[in-house]
Simulated scan of single mutants.
Amino acid sequence: MGFTIVGMRERRTPRAPTRTGRRGAGGSPLDTAVAEYVGLWGWDVTPGAVLVTGQAGCRCSCGRADCPAPGAHPLAPGRLIPAGTPLDEALDAWAEARAAAPGATALLPTGLRFDVLQVPEAVARAALPRLDRLALPLGPVALAPDDRAWFFVAPGIAAQLPSLLRALGWPATPPRLAALGRGAQVPAPPSAVADLGEVVWLRRPDVETAATPPGASPLLGVLATLCRRLAPTG
């Protein structure tokens, strides 16, 4: 079987993966996470390349000497484990990906189920208690070990970011605030980022926030303000 599971399944209410699969009890934390993302949260997962360290330095597991994004892209176009894939099939597809590329990451494609607002770690950590005090709706929040934090928001927001910021009184995008939509992806916890460490959840998903992530406003206003105050340029 290839990496692609044939046929996109109609999205239904996310259901928790059962632990009856033959790899269920002995899998790694990332194996378990992939089954959770596909079966419980209703997200697609793409096996991703990994940065390999050797005598000649670091190289991407894809083998391309001129790789434009070493260790930070899908293994190949179309290699997707779709949301709703049965547990055994999802784990088989993921096991095959890991066998072909040991240490492969699990990437979450943006633009379909959710978009992502990307900010530095300091901004994310300052924003969370403020958002809690304001009782603002909040989706999942992930943190990478290379000073990137991702707020999961409703799909379509990345394309609207400039107009959304203008509506909030921002003529230009604040430093280090970015939005990821169609064609992008983020590594899912607990995937490794190069040799820096693993991606972790600052706020874990739940059934409601995974299925219906919040809109950008007023979350975007809080992040934009904190980016201006806390995020160095560059």
Rank of each mutant, 00 (worst) to 15 (best):
Pro187Tyr: 06
Asp92Gln: 09
Gly78Val: 11
Ala65Val: 15
Ala178Gln: 13
Phe151Ile: 05
Leu226Arg: 00
Val45Asn: 04
Cys62Val: 04
Gly183Cys: 14
Leu219Thr: 03
Ala126Gly: 04
Thr105Met: 08
Arg22Val: 15
Pro232Asn: 12
Ser191Met: 03
Pro68Arg: 00
Ser28Asn: 09
Ala72Ser: 13
Val153Gln: 00
Val38Asp: 08
Val6Ile: 09
Pro70Asp: 08
Ala224Ile: 07
Leu128Cys: 12
Asp92Tyr: 03
Met8Ala: 06
Ala122Arg: 15
Gly139Cys: 03
Ala69Phe: 09
Leu168Trp: 02
Ala33Ser: 15
Arg229Asp: 15
Gly27Ile: 05
Pro232Met: 11
Arg15His: 12
Thr225Tyr: 03
Arg23Cys: 07
Ser163Ala: 15
Pro213His: 06
Pro214Tyr: 01
Asp66Lys: 10
Arg203His: 06
Asp132Leu: 08
Gly169Pro: 07
Ala124Trp: 13
Glu36His: 10
Gln55Phe: 06
Asp66Gly: 13
Arg228Met: 15
Leu138His: 03
Thr225Asp: 07
Gly63Cys: 14
Ala90Arg: 01
Arg125Asn: 02
Pro214Val: 08
Ala178Phe: 07
Leu226Ile: 13
Ile157Gln: 05
Gly111Asn: 05
Val141Gly: 01
Asp66His: 09
Leu161Tyr: 08
Gly169Leu: 09
Ala101Thr: 13
Leu134Asp: 15
Leu196Ala: 10
Phe114Met: 14
Pro213Gly: 12
Pro140Ser: 14
Thr212Gly: 01
Leu161Thr: 15
Val45Asp: 05
Ala149Trp: 08
Leu91Phe: 02
Arg19His: 11
Ala106Gly: 02
Gly21His: 00
Ala172Thr: 15
Gly54Arg: 12
Arg148Thr: 14
Cys60Tyr: 01
Arg64Leu: 13
Gly7Glu: 09
Glu96Leu: 07
Pro29Asp: 09
Pro17His: 03
Arg125His: 07
Arg113His: 11
Leu136Arg: 02
Thr209Trp: 01
Arg113Ser: 13
Arg15Ala: 14
Asp146Cys: 05
Ala97Lys: 05
Val123Phe: 03
Thr225His: 08
Ala179Trp: 02
Ala224Tyr: 00
Leu131Asp: 02
Cys60Asn: 05
Ala184Met: 14
Gly57Asn: 14
Cys60Lys: 03
Pro218Cys: 07
Arg9Asp: 12
Ala216Ser: 12
Ala25Val: 13
Pro109Glu: 15
Ala179Asp: 08
Leu117Lys: 04
Gly139Arg: 00
Gly27Trp: 01
Pro17Cys: 06
Ser61Gly: 08
Val153Pro: 00
Ala211Leu: 05
Ser217Asp: 04
Gln55Ser: 13
Phe3His: 04
Arg23Met: 08
Gln160Thr: 05
Gln185Lys: 06
Pro174Lys: 12
Gly63Leu: 12
Ala35Met: 04
Pro47Trp: 03
Pro190Glu: 14
Thr209Val: 14
Pro77Met: 06
Val45Met: 06
Thr233Val: 10
Gln55Asn: 11
Gly71His: 02
Gly39Lys: 01
Gly84Gln: 04
Ser61Val: 02
Phe152Glu: 10
Arg64Pro: 03
Thr18Ile: 10
Pro171Phe: 04
Ala99Gly: 06
Pro162Arg: 02
